[in-house]
């Protein structure tokens, strides 16, 4: 398949979240509660890409992932004063995204059921990857169960600790670590490494 996209700069190391991010985001949430609309744009710029990748790991569909991102920011815009009590905004936003995904799945006869058939899914590997080799890895990633894809995305790509990723996904730290380990083992088997 010919590559039409230009290669993007590759990030080799996992970005570790720190307290400065939480402080910056908490400030944005405070501004948002006070009615500052630019604060929502700041939050979007800081978290939309990460949320989108999480959504993509859950849905394997760009449009559905974008819808989930929109659902997150609609929820944030309407929550109001309880946002002041949020201690870790990044975790909070990802939890909203996951809750929105679960709500969508619970709806009867939605497009999620159609996606249960892998053949009906449009390939998203091209969106994941910047190089041919990376496309292979991305295709293999897509074949993992959703919870394993999700933990790989949250821990390895987004830099959440197992504890944070566990809180986001509603699992214990041990379950999160176990899912990650199993996911990597399966990927290694697929790649024959």
């Amino acid at each position: 398949m010919p590559m039409t996209k230009t290669p993007r700069p590759l990030v080799i190391s996992t970005r570790v979240r720190d307290e400065r991010d939480d402080h910056r985001d908490a400030t944005s949430l405070r501004r948002l509660v006070q009615g500052d609309r630019d604060a929502l744009a700041d939050l979007y710029d800081a978290h939309a890409a990460s949320l989108f990748r999480h959504g993509l790991a859950l849905t394997r569909s760009r449009s559905d992932a974008e819808d989930l991102v929109q659902a997150v920011f609609l929820k944030v815009a309407t929550t109001g004063a309880p946002l002041l009590a949020v201690r870790h905004p990044a975790n909070y936003l990802h939890r909203i995204l996951r809750a929105a995904w679960i709500d969508d799945r619970r709806r009867p006869a939605t497009h999620w059921e159609e996606q249960a058939d892998p053949e009906s899914n449009p390939p998203t590997s091209d969106y994941y990857a910047a190089t041919e080799d990376a496309i292979d890895v991305s295709r293999m990633l897509e074949q993992l169960p959703v919870v394993q894809r999700e933990i790989v995305m949250l821990h390895l790509i987004e830099g959440f600790s197992f504890r944070e990723a566990g809180r986001i996904t509603g699992a214990s730290i041990f379950t999160a670590a176990s899912r990650y380990r199993v996911a990597l083992e399966r990927l290694r088997e697929m790649m024959g490494r």
Binding site: L10, A48, L156
Partner: peptide
């Protein structure tokens, strides 16, 4: 971080 994790990091960076 092993080779597989490096490959994943290089591969998985989609944006909206």
């Amino acid at each position: 971080m092993d080779e597989m994790e490096h490959s994943l990091l290089k591969a998985v960076r989609p944006e909206p």
